[in-house]
Computed example of a mutant assay.
Amino acid sequence: MSVRVVVVDDHPVVRAGIVGLLAGEDDLDVVGEAGDGLQALDVVAAESPDVVLMDLRMPRLDGAAATGRVLAAHPEVRVVVLTTYESDADILRAVEAGATGYLLKDTPREDLVEAVRAAARGETVLAPSVARRLVAQVRGDDQRLTARELEVLAAVARGGSNGQIGAELFISEATVKTHLLRIFTKLGVDDRTRAVTVAIERGILPSP
Protein backbone atom coordinates (compact mmCIF):
# COMPACT_ATOMS: atom_id res chain seq x y z
CA MET A 1 0.00 0.00 0.00
CA SER A 2 1.37 3.43 -0.96
CA VAL A 3 2.35 6.06 1.58
CA ARG A 4 0.20 9.14 0.94
CA VAL A 5 2.29 12.33 1.09
CA VAL A 6 1.46 16.05 1.11
CA VAL A 7 4.29 18.50 0.30
CA VAL A 8 4.13 21.98 1.86
CA ASP A 9 6.59 24.69 0.72
CA ASP A 10 6.08 28.33 -0.25
CA HIS A 11 8.63 28.17 -3.08
CA PRO A 12 6.97 26.59 -6.16
CA VAL A 13 10.27 25.46 -7.71
CA VAL A 14 11.41 23.81 -4.47
CA ARG A 15 8.01 22.20 -4.01
CA ALA A 16 8.04 20.85 -7.57
CA GLY A 17 11.53 19.46 -6.99
CA ILE A 18 10.45 17.58 -3.86
CA VAL A 19 7.33 16.25 -5.58
CA GLY A 20 9.41 15.10 -8.56
CA LEU A 21 11.91 13.42 -6.26
CA LEU A 22 9.19 11.41 -4.51
CA ALA A 23 7.24 10.65 -7.70
CA GLY A 24 9.82 8.12 -8.85
CA GLU A 25 9.06 5.81 -5.91
CA ASP A 26 6.38 3.15 -6.44
CA ASP A 27 5.40 3.08 -2.77
CA LEU A 28 5.07 6.86 -2.33
CA ASP A 29 2.09 8.79 -3.64
CA VAL A 30 2.05 12.61 -3.52
CA VAL A 31 -1.64 13.36 -3.04
CA GLY A 32 -1.46 17.12 -2.48
CA GLU A 33 0.62 20.28 -2.31
CA ALA A 34 0.34 23.53 -0.36
CA GLY A 35 2.14 26.87 -0.52
CA ASP A 36 1.64 27.96 3.10
CA GLY A 37 0.48 26.68 6.47
CA LEU A 38 -3.19 27.63 6.12
CA GLN A 39 -3.44 25.96 2.72
CA ALA A 40 -1.77 22.91 4.25
CA LEU A 41 -4.60 22.55 6.77
CA ASP A 42 -7.16 22.41 3.97
CA VAL A 43 -5.15 19.96 1.85
CA VAL A 44 -4.53 17.61 4.79
CA ALA A 45 -8.22 17.65 5.69
CA ALA A 46 -9.18 16.87 2.09
CA GLU A 47 -6.55 14.22 1.31
CA SER A 48 -5.90 12.39 4.64
CA PRO A 49 -2.17 11.84 4.01
CA ASP A 50 0.08 9.54 6.01
CA VAL A 51 3.01 11.97 5.95
CA VAL A 52 3.29 15.75 5.52
CA LEU A 53 6.63 17.24 4.45
CA MET A 54 6.43 20.70 6.03
CA ASP A 55 8.58 23.75 5.31
CA LEU A 56 9.15 26.08 8.28
CA ARG A 57 9.37 29.69 7.11
CA MET A 58 6.15 30.41 5.20
CA PRO A 59 3.66 33.28 4.90
CA ARG A 60 0.28 33.41 6.68
CA LEU A 61 1.00 30.43 8.95
CA ASP A 62 4.50 29.06 9.54
CA GLY A 63 5.43 25.40 9.58
CA ALA A 64 5.65 24.93 13.34
CA ALA A 65 2.22 26.50 13.94
CA ALA A 66 0.74 24.55 11.02
CA THR A 67 2.22 21.33 12.41
CA GLY A 68 0.49 21.89 15.74
CA ARG A 69 -2.85 22.57 14.07
CA VAL A 70 -2.57 19.63 11.67
CA LEU A 71 -1.85 17.23 14.52
CA ALA A 72 -4.57 18.65 16.75
CA ALA A 73 -7.11 17.86 14.01
CA HIS A 74 -5.44 14.72 12.60
CA PRO A 75 -3.30 13.06 15.30
CA GLU A 76 -2.64 10.04 13.06
CA VAL A 77 -0.73 12.13 10.49
CA ARG A 78 3.09 12.22 10.67
CA VAL A 79 4.68 15.60 10.03
CA VAL A 80 8.31 15.80 8.92
CA VAL A 81 9.83 19.29 8.81
CA LEU A 82 11.97 19.83 5.71
CA THR A 83 13.80 23.13 5.90
CA THR A 84 17.03 25.02 5.24
CA TYR A 85 17.03 26.28 8.84
CA GLU A 86 18.41 24.50 11.88
CA SER A 87 18.51 27.07 14.65
CA ASP A 88 17.77 25.75 18.13
CA ALA A 89 14.59 27.81 18.31
CA ASP A 90 13.29 26.40 15.01
CA ILE A 91 14.07 22.83 16.00
CA LEU A 92 12.45 23.12 19.41
CA ARG A 93 9.30 24.78 18.09
CA ALA A 94 8.83 22.04 15.50
CA VAL A 95 9.46 19.22 17.95
CA GLU A 96 7.24 20.79 20.60
CA ALA A 97 4.48 21.11 17.98
CA GLY A 98 4.68 17.34 17.52
CA ALA A 99 6.78 16.89 14.38
CA THR A 100 7.93 13.30 13.86
CA GLY A 101 11.06 14.42 12.06
CA TYR A 102 13.30 17.33 11.17
CA LEU A 103 15.35 17.16 7.98
CA LEU A 104 17.40 19.70 6.06
CA LYS A 105 16.84 20.42 2.38
CA ASP A 106 20.35 19.26 1.54
CA THR A 107 19.40 15.74 2.69
CA PRO A 108 20.41 13.23 -0.03
CA ARG A 109 17.51 11.95 -2.14
CA GLU A 110 17.72 8.36 -0.90
CA ASP A 111 17.79 9.52 2.73
CA LEU A 112 14.73 11.72 2.22
CA VAL A 113 12.78 8.90 0.56
CA GLU A 114 13.67 6.48 3.36
CA ALA A 115 12.78 9.12 5.96
CA VAL A 116 9.26 9.43 4.51
CA ARG A 117 8.85 5.67 4.75
CA ALA A 118 10.21 5.62 8.29
CA ALA A 119 7.90 8.46 9.36
CA ALA A 120 4.93 6.57 7.92
CA ARG A 121 5.92 3.65 10.18
CA GLY A 122 5.87 6.01 13.15
CA GLU A 123 9.64 6.33 13.50
CA THR A 124 11.41 9.58 14.39
CA VAL A 125 13.66 10.91 11.62
CA LEU A 126 16.25 13.57 12.37
CA ALA A 127 19.12 15.04 10.40
CA PRO A 128 22.35 14.05 12.23
CA SER A 129 23.25 17.65 13.08
CA VAL A 130 19.74 18.23 14.45
CA ALA A 131 19.86 15.03 16.52
CA ARG A 132 23.15 16.08 18.10
CA ARG A 133 21.76 19.44 19.09
CA LEU A 134 18.55 18.03 20.53
CA VAL A 135 20.52 15.54 22.61
CA ALA A 136 22.78 18.34 23.84
CA GLN A 137 19.77 20.43 24.82
CA VAL A 138 17.98 17.60 26.60
CA ARG A 139 21.13 16.79 28.56
CA GLY A 140 21.77 20.45 29.27
CA ASP A 141 25.31 19.94 28.03
CA ASP A 142 25.65 23.62 27.23
CA GLN A 143 25.44 24.39 30.96
CA ARG A 144 28.41 22.16 31.66
CA LEU A 145 31.05 24.32 30.01
CA THR A 146 33.91 24.67 32.47
CA ALA A 147 35.24 28.07 33.51
CA ARG A 148 38.26 27.54 31.25
CA GLU A 149 36.06 26.51 28.29
CA LEU A 150 34.03 29.69 28.78
CA GLU A 151 37.25 31.72 28.73
CA VAL A 152 38.33 30.04 25.49
CA LEU A 153 34.89 30.53 23.91
CA ALA A 154 34.83 34.21 24.90
CA ALA A 155 38.26 34.66 23.34
CA VAL A 156 37.02 32.98 20.14
CA ALA A 157 34.08 35.40 20.10
CA ARG A 158 36.56 38.27 20.24
CA GLY A 159 38.21 36.89 17.11
CA GLY A 160 41.31 35.36 18.68
CA SER A 161 43.28 32.68 16.87
CA ASN A 162 44.32 29.52 18.72
CA GLY A 163 47.82 30.95 19.16
CA GLN A 164 46.51 34.27 20.49
CA ILE A 165 44.10 32.53 22.87
CA GLY A 166 46.89 30.30 24.16
CA ALA A 167 49.12 33.32 24.83
CA GLU A 168 46.29 35.20 26.52
CA LEU A 169 45.38 32.29 28.81
CA PHE A 170 48.96 30.98 29.31
CA ILE A 171 48.16 27.56 27.80
CA SER A 172 49.55 25.75 24.76
CA GLU A 173 47.92 25.92 21.36
CA ALA A 174 47.26 22.16 21.58
CA THR A 175 45.37 22.71 24.84
CA VAL A 176 43.30 25.42 23.18
CA LYS A 177 42.36 22.93 20.43
CA THR A 178 41.37 20.34 23.04
CA HIS A 179 39.13 22.86 24.81
CA LEU A 180 37.55 23.82 21.47
CA LEU A 181 36.77 20.20 20.61
CA ARG A 182 35.07 19.74 23.98
CA ILE A 183 33.10 22.97 23.47
CA PHE A 184 31.98 21.83 19.99
CA THR A 185 30.80 18.49 21.42
CA LYS A 186 28.90 20.08 24.30
CA LEU A 187 27.19 22.63 22.05
CA GLY A 188 26.52 20.14 19.24
CA VAL A 189 28.37 22.20 16.62
CA ASP A 190 31.18 21.62 14.13
CA ASP A 191 33.04 24.92 13.94
CA ARG A 192 34.07 28.06 15.82
CA THR A 193 31.50 30.36 14.24
CA ARG A 194 28.58 28.05 15.11
CA ALA A 195 29.94 27.62 18.64
CA VAL A 196 29.86 31.37 19.23
CA THR A 197 26.45 31.75 17.56
CA VAL A 198 24.86 28.94 19.59
CA ALA A 199 26.44 30.19 22.81
CA ILE A 200 24.94 33.65 22.20
CA GLU A 201 21.54 32.14 21.28
CA ARG A 202 21.50 30.19 24.55
CA GLY A 203 22.71 33.08 26.69
CA ILE A 204 26.05 31.43 27.51
CA LEU A 205 27.86 34.39 25.96
CA PRO A 206 26.50 37.96 25.94
CA SER A 207 25.25 39.35 22.64
CA PRO A 208 27.93 41.41 20.88
Rank of each mutant, 00 (worst) to 15 (best):
R139T: 01
A136G: 15
R132Y: 04
T107Y: 12
L134V: 13
V80S: 11
P49S: 01
P75I: 05
E149C: 00
E149K: 13
H179Q: 12
V156M: 07
P49R: 01
A66D: 03
V116N: 14
D55Q: 11
V189M: 00
P59F: 05
R139S: 03
G159S: 02
A120S: 13
V152S: 09
G68T: 12
L53S: 04
A94Y: 04
K177L: 00
A167V: 03
V95G: 04
L61C: 07
A94H: 00
R133H: 08
T84C: 05
A131I: 08
P49Y: 06
M54E: 00
A89S: 15
R158M: 07
G188R: 05
R132C: 03
F184K: 12
A136Y: 02
Q137A: 10
R121E: 13
E151L: 12
Q137H: 04
Y85Q: 14
L71D: 02
D141A: 14
I91H: 02
A72F: 10
G163I: 12
L71P: 09
R57C: 08
L104Y: 11
V113S: 03
A94R: 03
R139C: 09
V130Y: 03
H179K: 04
L104I: 06
G163S: 15
E151Q: 15
I183R: 01
L71Y: 09
V116Q: 11
R144F: 09
V152I: 06
D106T: 13
R148K: 14
P128H: 08
A157C: 10
T175Y: 10
V80K: 03
D90E: 06
R182G: 15
L112T: 11
E123H: 06
L126D: 06
R182L: 07
A65L: 12
A127F: 05
L104Q: 09
E76H: 12
G160R: 06
A119T: 05
R132T: 08
V138Y: 08
V176I: 04
A94S: 08
E86G: 03
G163H: 03
P59K: 04
M54I: 07
R158I: 07
A131K: 12
M58P: 11
D62N: 14
F170C: 01
R121D: 13
V81Y: 07
R139I: 12
T100N: 10
P128D: 03
L169K: 00
E47R: 15
P128A: 00
G122A: 09
V116G: 11
T175F: 10
L71I: 08
R133M: 07
S172V: 12
L112R: 14
